[in-house]
Design a protein around this nucleic acid. Structure first.
Lengths: 326, 326
DNA sequence: TTGTATGCGTTATCAA
DNA sequence: TTGATAACGCATACAA
């Protein structure tokens, strides 16, 4: 591996001059610049990023810490962030964490190698020590969709309003006996929206109208018997689901039992997964609105890193995407 | 940010001793070891990974280069690899590339920061300079699912046998007029398998029996009119698709036109996406077999990095996952 | 416009 | 068992 010294020697200049050329600094004669560039190219010289980082502190890397139970949405956002940062010459250092403790450890392990951090967080405390630590080290970071309110720069997704809107829409369609099917993790915002929606429509909330399901397609399918029972006993005619996977799992299982959707029952998911428009009936869903979360994070974090600007928090809304199932 | 010197000073030993303690080296009195550990902890000391990498060459990072058009499968494999490496204390440095040229650039930019590399490749040449360069630098790497044969350690997915098997299965079910719907990218292996399958079953191949569609659900749906035409004219009764998204898009569109699946027409996808079992009819598909690709890569690469073992190439098979659509 | 020399925070050689 | 000290490859203050 050739070093900057090799390049300097090869064309009879000092390392200082080579450094100038390589970092696009002024005060180098064009002729010398050419010579250095040629020598570097010829030797296949590449600056050592570690040495550079050690000296200058700039690493050209952004870190991403994500919780282990990352959804397709999270994966997609990570992809967007990575691609955008790639266009600015940054690579992305990623570490998954299974638990809040591991998440803190991951932050500590990744931060020293990064110019900035994106944290898809499960940290359940608003005062996570790792975040305080980052802050004290002046490492810019964005927390994405934390389950609790947080005083640090963060992107929030307002699911509550989406579920509220879902309820309103169903009621407007003449549905009165509504049900909410949620996974155990991150149910509270959905439940709050559901309850608020009922209240605003003047409908009474009953705790029996919240069903807890396991995760994913299978969770939805497995919840079907219980849902079916409620349909019979309480004449459920509208269902809001934790996400589209739950909705699809449930949809198929209910259809097999002869439930007509949307005629007899309206069904609404969450996330706007790619398949929504192509299943039968196409799935009405609630989706994040207000632009691309990944793009927003990129803008904020990049400016914070390169110009020291403050990162502004933002709340993205959610809204109905109307299709056939409701 | 406290350094190793601060720790050394704080407990009155030399940096050498602190270094010994921190790297679990022998020849330190237990009492001193305790003292050092306590001091480090108290100062919140964390070794600088850049300085460490600069000196020792070990970076505790594996790199992933992925092409921009990465499928869900790729994303999932990346996730698996990241999580496994996280359990061994490695973070993952990721860079997406839009083109083969950018892919080479990404390799060059990432490699110096990594102990090893995973390359989800679109490199269309078997002798990509970047790979030769990696090899000459003795940086272990695995190429995943390259579109061409390659002499470097690689994981191959044998799609051809899967499509062959698909044809055989359809014929066995009494289907004779088969159609293949492929995207433009990476169609050749599928076409080869399709043609081989037909040949083995003694069926004649006609070029009209290959339809090119755009990407994704929409591509499948948009191909429907053309497919419908063929169904009418040539009495198509079995379709193999590029992947499950194409299959689902096509499925819905055909159903809307009154085609009964699987009664009138058998439909087979590829990938075994999560929703396959939950749509109606559940989608029969072709899936990669032989274990988890990500886990295999982790094993190989980790051993190569830590013990210098050679990485062995492996070909993963593909096989039918029978459900209702065929 | 260019060069010399120092130090970033580690690891590791050598001597004690 | 320990310590002084020299690199690792680069960026930059300062001198020329």
């Amino acid at each position: 591996m050739p070093t900057i010294n090799d390049v300097a020697r090869k064309c009879g200049v000092s390392t200082r001059t080579v450094s100038r050329v390589l970092n696009d600094r002024p005060n180098v004669r064009p002729e010398v610049r050419q010579r250095v560039l040629a020598a570097a190219d010829q030797l296949g010289y590449r600056p050592d990023p570690n040495a550079r980082a050690l000296k200058s502190g700039r690493k050209q890397v952004v870190g991403i810490v994500a919780n282990s139970v990352s959804s397709d949405t999270t994966l997609h956002r990570i992809e967007v962030i990575s691609k955008l940062f790639a266009t600015s010459g940054y690579a992305v250092l990623m570490q998954f964490a299974e638990s809040p403790e591991m998440e803190e450890a991951a932050i500590h392990s990744i931060a020293p190698r990064c110019d900035g951090l994106v944290i898809f967080s499960n940290l359940h405390s608003a005062h996570a020590p790792a975040l305080l630590w980052l802050d004290s080290r002046h490492i810019p970071f964005v927390v994405v969709d934390p389950p609790v309110d947080i005083t640090f720069p963060a992107v929030h997704i307002d699911r509550r309003s989406g579920y509220r809107e879902g309820v309103r829409y169903l009621v407007q369609k003449g549905r009165r006996e509504l049900l909410l099917v949620v996974e155990s993790f991150r149910a509270s915002e959905r439940i709050a929206g559901f309850m608020e929606g009922l209240e605003r429509e003047g409908l009474r909330f009953r705790s029996s109208r919240i069903i807890h399901s396991a995760k994913g397609f299978k969770g939805g399918a497995d919840a079907a018997p219980q849902v079916l029972e409620l349909i019979k006993q309480e004449h459920i005619d509208g269902i809001l689901c934790h996400n589209d996977k739950i909705a699809l799992g449930l949809l198929g299982a209910l259809q097999k039992q002869g439930i007509a959707i949307p005629e007899q029952l309206s069904l609404i998911g969450f996330d706007d997964d790619g398949y929504d428009a192509y299943i039968n009936p196409a799935l009405t869903t609630i989706a994040q609105t207000g632009g691309d979360v990944g793009a927003f994070i990129y803008e904020q974090l990049k400016n914070a890193i390169e110009y020291g600007t403050a990162i502004e928090s933002k709340t993205f809304g959610t809204g109905l995407v109307l299709r056939a199932s409701a």
